Computed example of a mutant assay.
Amino acid sequence: MTSAPPADARGRTRRSRGDSRRGDSVFFNLSRGSGILLLVIMAAIAGFLAYRSFLALGKNEGNFLTTFEWAPDAAKPVFGIAVLTFGTLVSALIAMVIAVPVSVGIALFISHYAPRRIAQPFAYLVDLLAAVPSIVYGLWGVLFLVPHMDGLTSWMDEYLGWTYVFDQSSSGVPARNLFTVGILLAIMVLPIITAVTREVFRQVPRMHEEAALALGATRWEMIRTSVLPFGRPGIISASMLGLGRALGETIAVATVLSTNSQLSLHLLDPGGGTFAQNIALKFNEAQPLGRDALMASGLVLFVITLLVNGAARMIIARRKEYSGAAA
Rank of each mutant, 00 (worst) to 15 (best):
Ile193Asp: 03
Gly273Met: 06
Gln168Ala: 09
Arg318Val: 07
Val146Glu: 00
Gln120Met: 10
Leu108Val: 00
Arg22Leu: 10
Glu69Gly: 06
Ala95Ile: 07
Arg198Phe: 04
Gly273Leu: 13
Val256Glu: 06
Tyr51Gln: 13
Val104Ile: 14
Gly11Arg: 14
Val40Trp: 02
Phe144Leu: 14
Asn60Lys: 11
Arg32Leu: 12
Arg21Val: 13
Tyr51Cys: 14
Gln287Tyr: 11
Pro229Gln: 02
Leu268Glu: 00
Ala327Gly: 11
Val165Asp: 00
Ile135Cys: 11
Trp162Gln: 10
Asn60Gln: 03
Leu215Cys: 07
Asn63Thr: 06
Asp8Tyr: 09
Met42His: 03
Gln203Lys: 08
Ala95Leu: 11
Ala211Phe: 02
Ala46Thr: 06
Thr197Cys: 02
Arg52Gln: 15
Val26Phe: 01
Trp162Arg: 12
Lys320Trp: 10
Phe86Tyr: 15
Thr250Glu: 10
Leu49Pro: 10
Asn260Asp: 13
Pro101Ala: 12
Ala9Asn: 02
Arg32Glu: 07
Ala75Gln: 13
Leu160Ala: 09
Val189Cys: 02
Glu158Asp: 15
Val146His: 01
Leu307Ala: 14
Asn29Glu: 15
Val173Thr: 01
Tyr137Thr: 04
Ala276Trp: 00
Leu49Ala: 04
Val126His: 02
Gly23Phe: 03
Leu228Val: 13
His266Lys: 09
Gly80Thr: 05
Ala123Glu: 07
Thr2Val: 12
Ile187Val: 15
Arg116Lys: 07
Trp140Ile: 03
Ile251Asn: 04
Ala195Glu: 11
Arg245Glu: 01
Leu84Lys: 02
Arg17Lys: 12
Leu281Phe: 02
Ile223Arg: 01
Val100Pro: 11
Gly216Tyr: 03
Leu263Val: 08
Ala9Met: 06
Phe86Leu: 08
Glu69Met: 12
Leu228Arg: 01
Gln120Gly: 00
Ala9Ile: 12
Leu65Val: 09
Ser226Arg: 03
Asp19Thr: 09
Val189Gln: 05
Leu37Gly: 12
Arg176Ile: 09
Ala130Ile: 01
Ile106Met: 08
Ile135Glu: 12
